[in-house]
């Protein structure tokens, strides 16, 4: 069964269709890349899935259960992790504390005002940091991390709720070349090992075609192609849309 099943998703802002009738699915252990030119509706799609926006029409199913219209906090509790295009971490806290907060939230322990947080969930946090290759920096403040390390920290945070689905918005933006491949290899191995479905957007085509299992292409809010990387790459409509020229004249 698909982990994520999106059907007929639509959203418009002030009469402009940002996303129109988009359907797709992601299965466990799979990396699905969503690509398309600026304004194609990728971010809107992400925000519809994780609850920051409510769709005008369509359904979002997580492991067969509808999560359409739920708030982000509820969707997170059901097992959807997310990383952001511009990293969102807790800058004034150490790397370990960043992950601890997420773990404590998952364990519903946040309201306790007297427990000694520095001693809670340390082993679990370190295990996640080890997975993300960040254990050696656990005691550094997030504010001083290199950008690539911030992305890896985000990944560790996103894994804290043992997600079934991972949404990654431009996971490699702002990273140098070598770092990009490393992060995507890490993501892929985590996805395979824990049977997590991964949906990511990406502008670096090398990253997409090297690491994605499948690719879906959006343009003008609609799905114009979907399939294996090689097939999508050869699709003339995709090439037009991505160059953005003929699409404008159409």
């Amino acid at each position: 069964m698909s982990v994520l099943q999106v059907s007929g998703l639509s959203k418009s802002f002030g009469g402009v269709h940002a996303v129109r009738n988009v359907s797709f699915a992601v299965v466990a252990g799979e990396l699905l890349a969503m690509i398309g030119p600026n304004g194609a509706g990728k971010s809107t799609c992400f925000n519809l899935i994780n609850g920051q926006l409510t769709p005008d029409a369509g359904r979002v199913l997580l492991e067969g259960r509808s999560i359409t219209g739920l708030p982000p906090r509820a969707i997170w509790r059901l097992g959807v992790g997310r990383t952001f295009q511009v990293t969102a971490t807790f800058a004034s806290m150490t790397v370990r504390e960043n992950v601890q907060v997420a773990l404590l939230s998952h364990a519903r322990r946040l309201p306790s005002p007297f427990a000694q947080a520095p001693r809670l969930q340390v082993a679990q946090a370190d295990a996640l940091l080890a997975q993300a290759g960040m254990l050696d920096q656990a005691d550094r403040p997030a504010a001083v991390l290199a950008y690539g390390d911030l992305k890896r920290l985000e990944l560790a945070i996103a894994l804290a709720n043992r997600p079934r689905l991972l949404l990654m918005d431009e996971p490699t933006a702002g990273m140098a070349c070598g770092e990009r491949a490393a992060l995507m290899r890490l993501t892929a191995s985590l996805a395979r090992a824990s049977a997590i479905a991964v949906l990511f957007t990406e502008h670096d085509m090398d990253t997409v075609f090297t690491h994605a299992d499948r690719v879906i292409v959006l343009a003008g809010g609609e799905r114009i192609a979907e399939g294996a990387p090689a097939k999508v790459r050869a699709d003339p409509r995709v090439r037009e849309a991505y160059l953005g020229t003929e699409a404008l004249d159409a």
Binding site: V86, T87, A143, L145, A146, Y147, A173, G174, A176
Partner: peptide
């Protein structure tokens, strides 16, 4: 150049 920790131009 870049924004905060994110370097964009190398």
């Amino acid at each position: 150049a870049g924004y905060g920790r994110a370097q964009v131009l190398f």
